[in-house]
């Protein structure tokens, strides 16, 4: 059959330069993506742009909303809390996630099981998980009961509605975003390198420090960025388990929208978006991180 078709396609190929200046076949991927692109344009890109525009043209063209941020104590405190929480959460995820990623990669028969355990919370809604943390961390929650039973405390301590509660819950929710890129990087390390290091006189710890850790840095960078940027925009969890005075940027935005203070909300959103983009832009320039970007994009 292909032999019959060949002369025709050959003829087409020869005549293409004159008769077919535009190659429709190259447009096929674009056409396939067109419905989604259109959807995203109408229901996502346009509203975002419209919303962001409110920060500079409400009520008329002005940059005054941004200018006021420099004297805005509430904004500065909120921004600092948001940034601080994101850093803490990211570090927590890294410290807890790296060993898990190593375990995941080293486990053979157990690997699918471990993966399900890591991903199970991932498939549960953030809202449900935040409620679960409220139950666990409350005054009569499991954590307090356990500490009382062990005699480590005399009366229930306040965990819920503190920054610590926010950090614990966010670390739990964001852990998979840290574990998976690191596990991916670890999996790509040729096992013979680890054997070679061992054979050349390197103890397991020295092998980890000199070979495994440096070769997994691309995954660490990708996981750190992903976790940090996601943590910056977290809303539900800090709103539910966090302290009433520890307001994050996203909570402040929601509050301003509630009060129909659109221009201020739009300005804060623009700042949050700009911060996330700026971090990505700077991180891309770092050696090693750029590679992680390219591989995670592939």
């Amino acid at each position: 059959m292909s032999e019959v078709a060949q002369p025709a396609s050959l003829a087409l190929a020869v005549s293409r330069p004159q008769t077919a200046p535009f190659d429709w076949r190259r447009a096929v991927p674009l056409l396939l993506a067109a419905p989604l692109l259109l959807y995203m344009l109408v229901f996502y890109a346009l509203p975002v742009v419209a919303m962001l525009l409110r920060s500079v043209n409400d009520p008329s063209w002005t940059l005054s909303h941004y200018a006021t941020l420099f004297d805005d104590v509430v904004f500065q405190k909120t921004f600092w809390i948001t940034f601080n929480t994101s850093v803490t959460v990211t570090l927590g995820c890294l410290i807890l996630g790296y060993p898990v990623a190593m375990g995941l990669v080293r486990a053979k028969a157990m690997a699918p099981f471990i993966l399900v355990i890591i991903l199970l919370p991932f498939w549960t809604s953030v809202l449900v998980r935040s409620y679960a943390w409220m139950v666990l961390l409350g005054r009569h929650g499991l954590v307090n009961e356990a500490l009382l039973a062990l005699g480590m405390i005399d009366r229930p301590i306040r965990i819920l509605n503190t920054p610590l509660a926010t950090q614990i819950a966010m670390i739990h929710i964001l852990l998979p975003y840290m574990i998976l890129p690191i596990a991916n990087a670890l999996r790509q390390i040729d096992p013979s390198l680890i054997r070679a290091a061992s054979g050349l006189g390197s103890t397991p710890f020295m092998t980890f420090r000199q070979i495994i850790l440096p070769l997994s840095m691309s995954g660490v960078a990708a996981g750190t960025l992903l976790t940090f940027v996601l943590a910056l925009g977290f809303y539900i969890t800090p709103a539910m388990v966090g302290g009433p005075r520890d307001i994050t940027l996203s909570m402040l935005i929601a509050q301003q929208v509630d009060q129909l203070n659109w221009a201020y909300a739009a300005t804060l959103s623009a700042v949050l978006l700009a911060t996330a983009l700026a971090i990505l832009a700077v991180a891309r320039k770092l050696p090693g991180v750029g590679n992680a970007f390219r591989t995670s994009m592939r």
Binding site: D190, S192, L193, R195, A196, G199, L200, G201, P204
Partner: peptide, 18 residues
């Protein structure tokens, strides 16, 4: 292995890429 003091050349060389 790290205490045996043996030199080893691997099939794919196993050079540390970094």
């Amino acid at each position: 292995p790290y205490r045996r003091n043996i030199g080893m050349v691997f099939q794919n060389y196993a050079l540390f890429p970094h």
